[in-house]
């Protein structure tokens, strides 16, 4: 299984990773090598085997629908790159 640079560019776009052309070329080789290793999964006979999403086969526990104390917005926004009046700032989205 080998990945073309075009495929890597597409995956990088899906993952929102800004990469330059040199990086794309390097990753194409590395990701191809990794996929070659994982290709061995194909050979495994998994007929009638249920997929395992949780190592103990437990379902996620539900908690009671009750209000709990939350930390202040100020605490969380103190570490944000850009905030004003309680909202997070990003570049303009709508012209």
């Amino acid at each position: 299984m080998s990945l073309s640079e075009e495929q890597v560019r597409n995956v990088a776009r899906l993952a929102r990773l800004g990469l330059d052309d040199d990086q794309i070329a390097e990753y194409a080789g590395e990701l191809s090598n990794i996929l070659e290793v994982v290709a061995s999964l194909e050979q495994a006979d998994t007929t009638d085997v249920e997929p395992m999403a949780h190592p103990l086969d437990l379902a996620a526990r539900l908690r009671a629908d009750a209000a709990v104390a939350v930390q202040s917005r100020d605490d969380f926004q103190a570490i944000a790159p850009a905030v004003a009046e309680g909202v997070y700032l990003v570049p303009k989205v709508i012209e």
């Binding site: 994982v38 999964l41 194909e42 495994a44 998994t46 085997v49 249920e50 997929p51 395992m52 999403a53 190592p55």
Partner: peptide, 15 residues
């Protein structure tokens, strides 16, 4: 299906 779902199945075989 070929990768993720398959790996979840082989995970069960290992367990």
């Amino acid at each position: 299906d070929a990768y993720y779902l398959k790996a979840q199945k082989t995970r069960r075989l290992i367990a």
